[in-house]
Design a protein around this nucleic acid. Structure first.
Lengths: 207, 207
DNA sequence: AAAAAAATCCCCTGAAAGGGTGAGCGATCC
DNA sequence: GGATCGCTCACCCTTTCAGGGGATTTTTTT
């Protein structure tokens, strides 16, 4: 069997170099390209046809989540492992929803990375142990509500301190509509006031 | 002149490997040790007597900030460069106050790292361009209001979704007092509603 | 001991948020 | 072609918030 071809996508040179150093030590795979952003990643993808893409979730302009979605649409066979720092676990579910096959925290050891790659290539899903371990956080992750475009928009305006009438004026919609959206947001986050709404949204990385 | 001896401290193997790869390419310095945490760092320090320590700010147990403070107390001659992901700029000021000589974001390029090391070794201070550049964020950093103990306490309760009467009951104080504290919080953050208050506090890392 | 800062308390008013319910309309999915 | 979902709008009612005063008592700093 040929070596597994991998592309690593991250905007931090340090992470790219770190991954390069670690992947070199694993003999059944080959790092065929790296990219600093989603555009470059998509370009390299066309050239190289890799088996696996390991991508940071926080990329400038186009996020790793969107990159994953686009990539999976065009090349469903390519496996994707998402990567993120420990602070951003909240994005994991979105990543999975976009079609990712695995998730690694950046604090992963060489062994963990190797294991993740092996499992994902076999068709299994791999989630960093750190992700599985913390039950409370896992629960919080699961309870992350799915917001509609409009709801996110309004959530941001609320966070910016606009009142319902101001939001209504800005979006050219009725005050009642804004009110409804706000209520739906509160319901989705299972809370009952804006302060904790913003706190939860902030913790979830939505803001 | 001898090569500059450096110790890198970070709990992410990927960053360690990335730094190792990048530092190897710079000929006037030598990576003499690495450490995953503050304890190991202090141990290696005693053994190696480096010229420079590059440390992550977010370390388990003992933070990079505290490590810096301890290190500077014992070995004032050793230079320290703090390192952090772009999200955590709010810690920079604390880092500088603890005696750090420089600050790098983890997204730094090889060139930037080289420049930072050179300047710091010469006795100058280096801050990542990202830190200097963004005036708005810099302002936000500076404008971080100083909160009293009580105000922080109440801020957290507001964020948890408690209403003023609930807070009053919980803290055994009058509703009016809570109201006053809340007003002071709004004034200090120069905003006029709880939602944006929580957003700002959240961004500042207070929550 | 005097001054400053923090914490406490009180009253007022209008605006805004929160809670409940129902309903029309367009796009998309099956 | 029916069902679901997202977005829109409406009405009613109660509670909370925001902002404006002013005031006293601890605690800390100088």
């Amino acid at each position: 069997m040929d070596k597994i071809k991998i592309i690593v996508v991250d905007d931090h040179p340090m992470v790219i170099e770190g991954m390069r150093a670690m992947l070199q030590q694993i003999d059944f795979l080959e790092l065929c390209a790296t990219a600093n952003n989603a555009y470059m990643a998509l370009e390299k993808l066309r050239e190289q046809q890799p088996d696996l893409v390991i991508t940071d979730i926080n990329l400038p302009e186009i996020s790793g989540i969107e990159l994953t979605a686009r990539l999976k649409k065009e090349y469903p066979a390519i496996k994707v492992i998402g990567m993120s720092t420990f602070n951003e676990r909240s994005y994991i579910s979105q990543m999975i929803q976009s079609g990712a096959d695995g998730f690694l925290v950046k604090s992963a050891s060489k062994e963990e990375i190797e294991k993740a790659i092996s499992l994902v290539i076999e068709g299994q899903m791999y989630l960093s142990v750190d992700v599985n371990m913390n039950n409370q956080e896992k629960k919080e992750l699961k309870n992350q509500p799915v917001l509609t475009r409009r709801e996110k928009e309004i959530l941001h305006l609320i966070a910016d301190g606009l009142t319902n009438p101001q939001i209504a004026e800005k979006l050219f919609i009725s005050l009642n509509t804004v009110d409804t959206h706000r209520k739906n947001l509160l319901a989705k986050f299972e809370t009952n006031n804006s302060a904790s709404l913003i706190k939860l949204a902030s913790k979830s990385g939505i803001i």
